[in-house]
Design a protein around this nucleic acid. Structure first.
Lengths: 132, 132
DNA sequence: TTACATAGTGTTATATTATAACAAATTTAA
DNA sequence: TTAAATTTGTTATAATATAACACTATGTAA
């Protein structure tokens, strides 16, 4: 059963929910939504979320404690993530910009630390909200 | 009393603690540390933290829910922050790199959103930990 | 095929992080 | 000097996340 698409039952249920969503979902919102499917307790949700993050299927928006599906096809493992976040409507968009990604992946710390991962969150007001 | 340095009593106590610390401090660690100084409840800590973040005296490390003092002299308001984080020893260093800062401040989203703030967190193993 | 390791599930309880709401005191500015 | 804004103190509770344990399903290799 697992092999078909390499997600387990709970992982698939939770991934589908996040993937369909147009906005970041919080763990307890997810929990509430999947209770009819038999997922009843926080650890079941958090374990699935951890695995999905680990495999790059979803990303955590740290400033919001919420999760979005990965929209960047070449992002099997989340080692270079960037998002734009609207402070008015809360919309979150994954940024797939090769130049930005290359620039940051190649960034060298003055103190000699070698980075293997980064997460970048931009904040502003989105086009839609600006009109209103 | 407030005017001298524009921090209130609680804000000053909590800023001093964070400023002296060599590592990021969590809200409840702070609460425990300042109880002898009469700060007894979470809201007192969180209110001071909020204000200190707002004025750029400290920064929140989102991936750790912890706070560090601002080390970047020209950073009155935290609108462009970058940190390097060691995944082994948990050390956090603020990155003050003019080029990086300019590059990101000038970054334009394809979808036309104008950014007024960003936060970047790099992860890796620091020099010290690599030796061990 | 058995048996062993690895990954996933279900469950209860609890730890950790953060805010709501209200009354009182202090500071600032008109 | 009085009114507005900010800060404080306090109790209670909301929201986010993990520990620990018993059990089941799956993949692997003898």
């Amino acid at each position: 059963m697992y092999k078909e698409n390499n997600l387990s039952k709970n992982q698939q249920i939770i991934f589908d929910l996040i993937n369909k969503s147009s906005e970041p979902l919080k763990a307890y919102t997810i929990l509430f939504s999947v209770q009819k499917k038999g997922i009843k307790a926080p650890p079941q949700v958090y374990r699935a979320l951890d695995k999905l993050v680990e495999t790059g299927k979803i990303h955590k928006i740290e400033s919001k404690n919420a999760f979005v599906a990965c929209r960047s096809s070449n992002c099997e493992i989340s080692k270079a993530t960037a998002f734009s976040i609207c402070e008015s409507c809360e919309m979150v968009d994954e940024i797939s910009d090769t130049k930005l990604s290359k620039y940051l992946s190649g960034f060298n710390h003055k103190k000699g630390m070698k980075f293997k991962r980064f997460n970048l969150e931009f904040f502003g007001i989105c086009k839609k909200c600006k009109k209103d």
